[in-house]
Every structure is written in structure tokens, then in C-alpha cells.
Amino acid sequence: MIALVEPVIGNLIENHLQANGLLQPRSTKEELAAEAKVNLANAVGVPDWVKNMASSHIGELDHEKMQLDQIKNFIVVLRENVLS
């Protein structure tokens, strides 16, 4: 049974996510950078000197591109047919 649905289920999920706008970046570069700074500041196991150093470089990262890359990688996984 699984072998019968494996070739189509990934495409169905992708089409559903695409139709509902869920395969688009959800935040701007600035919003993502601000969120990353908050998450870094709240990281309990990270020393303050690391937080300070990393925080000063967060704005240089292209967070939107990283999000698009994650979406592309997710689509690749959805399209993979492990049973073929």
C-alpha cells in the first residue's frame, strides 16, 4: 500500500502548501534578524562573549535567502521517492 501512495503523497503535500502560501518566506530579512537576536540573547547555554560576538554579525546574514534555501530543501525531500 505504501508503495502505491509514495510517488504521489509528496506532490500532494507540496501542492497544498503552495496553494496556501506556505512555501513563501514568512518574514522579512529585518524581522528574521531581530528574531535571531532575541533567540540568541535568551540562549541559556551560550556564554555572553559568544552572544555579543554573534549578535554583532547577525545583521550581515541573509536570513531571507536562508529561509528560501530551507524551503527548497524541504521540497526536495517531499519529492524524493525512497521506494523507487
Rank of each mutant, 00 (worst) to 15 (best):
A3T: 03
L61N: 07
R79D: 08
E6W: 02
H57C: 08
A3R: 13
R26W: 05
Q67M: 13
K51Y: 00
P47M: 02
G59W: 00
Q24T: 14
L12Y: 10
L22I: 06
L40E: 00
E6I: 08
N39H: 15
I2A: 08
L83S: 07
A33R: 01
A41G: 06
A19G: 12
N81P: 07
S56M: 00
E64W: 08
D69A: 13
H63S: 08
I2P: 05
L4T: 06
D48M: 09
A34M: 03
I75E: 04
E80Y: 15
E31Y: 01
G45Y: 07
N15R: 11
R79I: 05
I2S: 11
I13R: 05
E60R: 06
K65Q: 13
I75Q: 03
D62H: 04
A41H: 05
V50H: 03
N15Q: 15
N42D: 11
N52K: 13
L68R: 12
K29Y: 06
G45K: 14
M1F: 13
L83C: 09
L78Y: 07
I71Q: 01
I9R: 09
T28N: 08
N81A: 07
V8M: 14
R26N: 12
Q24G: 07
D48Y: 01
P7C: 07
L68M: 10
P7F: 01
K51R: 04
L68G: 05
I13S: 04
D62N: 12
S27H: 15
D48I: 04
N20E: 12
E30D: 09
L32I: 02
Q67G: 06
L12S: 12
T28V: 04
N11K: 14
A34C: 02
Q70L: 15
E64V: 11
N52C: 04
N20Q: 09
L78S: 05
V76E: 10
M66I: 14
L68H: 03
M53G: 07
M1T: 09
Q24Y: 09
L23D: 02
G10D: 02
A34W: 03
N39A: 15
A34N: 10
I71R: 01
I71F: 01
L4Q: 12
K51D: 01
S56C: 00
D69Q: 13
